[in-house]
Each structure stands twice: as structure tokens, then as C-alpha cells.
């Protein structure tokens, strides 16, 4: 009897171990790829920049209506987080839509996306936001340098955070702002948030006096916020590249989703959320040697 119990325990252990091993094996063969048959249920994992949340959710719903067997699931986060998840952790992404070219470059350099097949699908630009009540009485961009103002930005690693800092640098070279503008504004930064939506939330709540986000972010929160445009010569036109991840098990469906984003319908949805058209602005140049 004791031997019977022993062998039962061993069986349980063996089952557990073989489950573990089977999982390893699954990962190793994930690179296969192949076309799904029309009826087979497919789950598409789309890793997309946080700023795309509303527009991509709408495109995903339309795609699901057109392809009922495909369930589109999104992982929205800062582009840098997504790039790390794909390159460092081997996250099961089928598509990566980045809010800048650097993070796409990271994934291309890591060998997870074919650089020559990456397409730019939209453009975006940044602007200054403040709570509707405007506690710091912001009238001009110069007001951001006023001492004591509470400014919230995205972290420098997040594209929107980098563009905001680029704006300060360019403004400092402009006579209308003066060379001390950048340092004065950076002194007012009270928090570097992990993604652009957190900046939006804290300004909308009235916790910060001002923030810098994409024009597309304010499209949905206009009632809580006031905005101040940043002129073209000081602004960064954000380039959004998209690509199918090499390890994708449903590469064909993934490519169909990318095509849907680039198609007139997808572009119209993006425009509805304040995004600029794919053709208007810089395009993606694959890395040299990638």
C-alpha cells in the first residue's frame, strides 16, 4: 500500500514535470508560422502604444466583425515597455505598433521584426494641456517656465516624454523663449509618468497644473481640459510604425490586421481620434544591416 501511495505521488510529479517540459517545447516551436483556415478560431495579440488605445480598440472591433473567427486582444503600454517585453521576454506578440521609430528599431535590431516590412501607419503631434479650471493661469507656452508651476511629463524613455523635452530644447534656441527656457521648465517637472495616459489622468484630475500629451489624447477628454498648441517648428511629428512579429503563429491574419489599419477605413478611424494620415510626414527607414 505504501508503495502504491509512493508511486501515486511520483505519477503526480511526473505529470507536473512533463507539463513543464511540454510548455518549453511549445515555446521552442513557436516560430513555425502558417496560414489559419477560415473557420479556426484565432487570437491575435496586438502590442500597441498607449496613445493608440481608443483608435485601435475601434479598429479591432471592426476587424472582428469582418473576421468573426479572429479575437483581437490588445496590450496597450508605453512603446518602450512593449519593445522590452518582445525583445527581452519573448512576449507572445503578433503585431507591434510603436509610437516612435526608436522602439521599432529596438525590436528590429533584436531580430523580432523584419525591418523591410515595417510600415508607417499614422503620425501624431504633442500639445500642452491644463485642467479646465486652469489653476496656474496658463496663457502662453512661455508660462510653463514660471517658477512653482507643477508640470507632469511622460518619462524620457516614453516617446511623448522625449518629444516634450525636444520641444523645450528647440524653444530654448528660439528668441521668443530665451536660452534659459528649458532649464526653467524642467525645474517645474514634478513627475515623470510611465506612459502618456497617466499624464493625461493627473492633469484631468487637477493634480498637476500642466502636462504634455499627444493631440490625440485630448480628443476624448476635451471637456476636462484646456489645450495650447505647440507650433510645427518646435513640435515633433511622431511617426507610428507597425510590423508583424516574426515568431507569430498567425502571421497571415496578423498581416491582414496591419492591412486593415492602413486601408481607408482604418485611416478614417485613426483620423476620427485625431491622428494624422499615414502618408503625411516622415516614413520608416529600416536599420542599416537589419
Amino acid at each position: 500500500m505504501r508503495r502504491l501511495r509512493t508511486s501515486a505521488s511520483l505519477t503526480v510529479l511526473a505529470v507536473l514535470l512533463s507539463a513543464l517540459l511540454a510548455d518549453c517545447g511549445g515555446d521552442a516551436t513557436a516560430g513555425g508560422g502558417g496560414a489559419p483556415s477560415a473557420a479556426r478560431p484565432v487570437t491575435l495579440n496586438v502590442f500597441a502604444a498607449a496613445s493608440l488605445k481608443d483608435a485601435f480598440t475601434a479598429i479591432g472591433d471592426a476587424f472582428h466583425s469582418a473576421h468573426p473567427n479572429v479575437t483581437v486582444t490588445f496590450n496597450f503600454a508605453g512603446s518602450d515597455t512593449l519593445a522590452q517585453q518582445i525583445t527581452q521576454g519573448g512576449a507572445p506578440a503578433d503585431i507591434f505598433a510603436s509610437a516612435n521609430t526608436q522602439q521599432m528599431d529596438t525590436v528590429v535590431r533584436g531580430g523580432d521584426i523584419d525591418g523591410s516590412r515595417v510600415k508607417v501607419f499614422t503620425h501624431n503631434r504633442i500639445e500642452v494641456i491644463f485642467p479646465k479650471s486652469n489653476p496656474a493661469h496658463i496663457q502662453t507656452l512661455q508660462d510653463l517656465a514660471r517658477p512653482g508651476l507643477k508640470l507632469v511629463l511622460a518619462a524620457p524613455a516614453v516617446p511623448a516624454g522625449q518629444y516634450a523635452r525636444d520641444f523645450f530644447t528647440r524653444a530654448s534656441a528660439d528668441a521668443a523663449f530665451g536660452p534659459s527656457y528649458k532649464d526653467a521648465v524642467l525645474k517645474n517637472v514634478v513627475s515623470s509618468e510611465t506612459d502618456v495616459k497617466a499624464v493625461l489622468a493627473k492633469v484631468a484630475l487637477g493634480e498637476a497644473d500642466a502636462g504634455i500629451v499627444y493631440t490625440t489624447d485630448t480628443a476624448t477628454k476635451a471637456s476636462d481640459l484646456g489645450t495650447l498648441a505647440i507650433p510645427d517648428n518646435l513640435n515633433t511629428i511622431a511617426v507610428y510604425p507597425i510590423g508583424v512579429v516574426k515568431g507569430s503563429k498567425q502571421a497571415t491574419t496578423a498581416q491582414q490586421f496591419v492591412d486593415a489599419v492602413l486601408a481607408p477605413d482604418g485611416q478614417a478611424t485613426l483620423a476620427r481620434f485625431g491622428f494624422l494620415p499615414a502618408g503625411q510626414g516622415p516614413q520608416y527607414t529600416p536599420l542599416a544591416g537589419a
Binding site: 518619462a155 524613455a157 514634478v190 509618468e193 510611465t194
Partner: peptide
């Protein structure tokens, strides 16, 4: 929030460092 030297504790620095 997250600001180095003021509110950026080790777990926050780890997340942003990632």
C-alpha cells in the same frame, strides 16, 4: 508620481530602468 530624488523609490527606478 515619479521624480528622481523626490519620489522615485527603488521599485519605481527598477520599473523605469527596465
Amino acid at each position: 508620481g515619479n521624480f528622481p530624488g523626490r519620489t522615485q523609490t527603488m521599485p519605481l527606478a527598477i520599473y523605469l530602468g527596465f
